[in-house]
Each structure stands twice: as C-alpha cells, then as structure tokens.
C-alpha cells in the first residue's frame, strides 16, 4: 500500500515552506525592539519610583511601623507622625466626590447621548470636556472665593437645623472644609466620567433600545432598563477613572479643604487629604518629617493602585456577568 501522503509530499517539501516563511525584515525587528524597550522603560520607571519612595521613607517606616497608618497626630516638633486623618480625608472627599459626580455625570451623559437635539450635542460635549481643561489651581481659586462663600450660609443653616446628625454638626468656619474639598473633586471628576459614560451609551446597539420600545416602554424606560444595564461595565469603568482622578488630585483640594488634621465625621470641619498634606508640609519639612511625608506619598501610591485594580476587577466582573449571564 502506498504510504499516506503528507502535506510536504503534496507541496514539494521545502518549496512550500519557503513560500510561507518570509525572513523577518530588519525594519520589523527594529520596530519590535524599540516598542518593547519603551514598554519596559515605563515599567522600570514605575518600579524605580516605588523603590526610591520606599528607600527615602524607610527611616519613618522603621520608626513607626503600623502606627504610621493608625496614628492621628502629625507633630514635627515631637517627631510623631500618624497618617490616619490624611488617609481618612482622602477617602472621605473622594467618596463625597463620587456621590455627587456619578449621578450628575450619568444624567449629563444620558442627555448628550440619547435626548439632546442633534445641533446641541457637539457643543455641549465640547463644553463638558473643556471643564477638564481648567487648570487645577484656577478651579481651586474659584472654589475658595466663589464656591465656599456661597456654601457657607447653607452649611450654617444645615448645622443649626440638622446638627443632631453627626455629618452636619457644627461649628462651621468659613466654608473651607471636607465638603468643599469633595465638591471641588466632583467637578474635576465630572468631565472624564461623563465622556466615558456617553461613549459607553453610544455603543449600545440600537436593537437593544428598540427591543424595549417594542414592548411598550417609554423613552425613559428604554434607557433605564435596556440601555444603562447594557452599558454598565462602561459606567463602572468611568466611575473608577473619576475616582482615580479624585484620589490623586492635589492643588484644588488643598486650597479648599481647610488644612485641619482631625479624624471626624463632620463634613463642615476643616480637613486634609494625603495629597494636600504632602503639598502643604513638604516646603518647611526637615529631618524625619521628610521621611514621613515620603511614606505618606507611598501610601497614596498604594491607595491609588488598589483603587485602580479594584476598578479593573469590578469591570471584568460586570463584563463576565453580562456575557456569561446569570448567577
């Protein structure tokens, strides 16, 4: 019996191979090499930064250990440094910012993608994106001289009428406090969240919207029950991007958060965030305080990393639920 023919027999062996295997061109290799180098250098920079922060922070880490994270005094004279109020301030102002920015952005994005008349869509989108172009320090000035004075009477009224709620307890000093910090951050997070949510909504297939409309849904029902659920991983991703912005933001929040250093639930108390603490202290710091500030930077670095990782996992989880479905 004839032995079964292999592909090489049928195609005359080497000739077949040489047709498919083109020698790699030097240009391709060069291109591959440079892009790889660029990617690696970015990774290297990140690691070098983390390593250097760790190195400079080491005296503080060795001295305070976990007490750095749990302590709530920052006393350069006695050289006692605890970061908890700053960590708390960052989390509180970021949470406030999300609480305000996510619903507002959703509303704006829904309007831009679904409801706005066509002539208004482009200019309105442009305006929202321009908001992201305002320099942080300008927004901070606006917050200090316009927003805070407007908020002040409102805060006094809230403190006197709802003061029994810990969040709203007085005293109120001049409107520079956690609440102002959170609101400024919400303004800064708004454009990015809006833009990403709008794009997510625009990618929802028309068939999804029409399926809901054909069941006798109103426009709002079609948006809330078909469009938004379909776009939810994009909405989560947008919120995480906004949160990342809020956690790391420095200048504007420093100008309006009030520079207190207390662990309190009172929104009207002057506070601090990790970033603003670093920004206000580093100029006059010396000795161990420098090491402590760098350790604070390291913690901020870690918190930002955790927020981003958590965000990514959340997005993957919502996507998996959407695709695989169900339980």
């Amino acid at each position: 019996m004839a032995r079964p023919q292999t592909i090489e027999d049928q195609t005359h062996g080497r000739a077949w191979r040489s047709l498919l295997r083109r020698p790699a061109s030097p240009g391709d290799r060069l291109f591959q090499g440079t892009t790889l180098l660029a990617a690696l250098s970015l990774l290297g920079l990140l690691l070098a930064m983390a390593a250097y922060l760790f190195y400079v922070a080491w005296p503080s880490i060795a001295r305070f250990g976990v007490r750095f994270l749990t302590g709530s005094t920052w006393d350069p004279v006695k050289e006692v440094f605890g970061a908890l109020p700053a960590i708390y301030g960052t989390l509180l102002t970021s949470a406030l910012a999300m609480l305000v920015a996510v619903p507002v952005s959703l509303g704006v994005a829904i309007f831009l993608a679904e409801l706005s008349p066509r002539w208004l869509r482009a200019p309105a989108s442009f305006l929202v994106e321009m908001l992201a172009a305002i320099p942080s320090v300008v927004l901070g000035l606006w917050g200090l001289f316009v927003m805070a004075p407007v908020l002040y009477p409102l805060e006094k009224w809230l403190a006197s009428s709802l003061g029994f709620v810990p969040l709203f307890r007085g005293p109120v000093f001049g409107g520079v406090n956690f609440l102002a910090g959170g609101l400024i951050l919400s303004i800064m997070a708004l454009p990015i969240i809006t833009a990403v949510v709008r794009d997510a909504i625009l990618t929802v297939p028309a068939a999804q919207r029409e399926a809901m409309l054909a069941l006798g849904a109103t426009r709002w029902e079609a948006i809330s029950q078909a469009v938004l659920p379909y776009a939810r991983s994009g909405i989560v991703a947008a919120s995480i991007l906004g949160l990342g912005r809020a956690v790391g933001e420095t200048m504007a929040v420093t100008m309006v958060v009030g520079n207190g250093y207390r662990l309190t639930a009172r929104l009207f108390a002057p506070g601090n965030t990790m970033a603003s603490k670093i920004a206000t202290q580093f100029n006059e710091a010396s000795g161990l305080e420098i090491n402590a500030l760098v350790e604070l930077a390291l913690v901020l670095f870690a918190v930002a990393l955790v927020v981003n990782l958590a965000g990514r996992l959340l997005v993957r989880w919502t996507v998996a639920r959407a695709a695989g479905g169900g339980q």
Partner: peptide, 20 residues
Amino acid sequence: VRVRRRVGMVFQKPNPFPTM
C-alpha cells in the same frame, strides 16, 4: 407607547437583554 403594547415586534437578529 400604547400602540406598541398592542402591536409587538420580533427583530431580524435575536436581541435578548444580555444583562437579564
């Protein structure tokens, strides 16, 4: 909306709601 409640529709490509 009232018209569509009385006149239902099935589309060319199956379009179930993927999140439900």
